[in-house]
Structure formats: C-alpha cells, structure tokens
C-alpha cells in the first residue's frame, strides 16, 4: 500500500485572492514581516500497489483531476506502508 500526500497551490503567476486577504489580516494582527501567503489544498490518498509505476499514476491523477494545470501547481510525497 502507498500513502500519497498531494499539495496543490495556485501558480506563482496567478493572484491568490484568499492568500492576499489572509496576508492583509496577518499584517493588521501585528505580523508585518509576512511577505506572501498562498492558500492551497492538501489531499491524502491511499493506494493499492499495481503494475504501473506509482509516480506515473499519481502524476496522471494530479494532471487530470486533482489540480488544474492552467492555474495550479502540485507536488506530492509517496510513502510505502507495510500492511500487517
């Protein structure tokens, strides 16, 4: 089994209205040193092993559904877990 952690964020070039609002709020709360806030999504997937390479499968899922490549970037971490 695999545990996959997927992080999706808006691309650097795309303005993040939520992040901007949170940055402004942090600023008024007394954290003027916050330079940037980007809000994204975090997903945990549990996958069974198949014949296909896990990286290939995860990337395909990220490209097709989990992120929208037009405005979002993704990265992922794969952990192999031992089934007892």
């Amino acid at each position: 089994m695999y545990k996959v952690k997927v992080y999706v964020t808006l691309r650097e070039s795309v303005l993040d209205p939520q992040g901007t609002a949170v940055k402004k709020s942090l600023d008024t709360m007394g954290y003027p040193n916050v330079q940037d806030v980007r809000i994204g999504k975090y997903m945990e997937l549990t996958l069974e092993k198949t014949e296909r390479k896990i990286e290939e499968v995860v990337e395909e899922m990220c490209e097709r559904l989990l992120s929208n490549p037009v405005i979002e970037d993704y990265r992922y971490e794969i952990e192999e877990s031992v089934v007892l």
């Binding site: 808006l10 795309v14 209205p17 939520q18 609002a21 929208n68 037009v70 405005i71």
Partner: peptide, 17 residues
C-alpha cells in the same frame, strides 16, 4: 466547459471573495 478543455482558461475565486 473550462475544466473539460472545451474553452481555454480557468476560474478563480472572485476578487472580493
């Protein structure tokens, strides 16, 4: 239609949220 790629581009949250 945007997600399906029948039209180009994507949607973001409204600027005002």
């Amino acid at each position: 239609l945007l997600e399906a790629g029948l039209l180009p581009g994507a949607m973001r949250r409204n600027e005002s949220l």
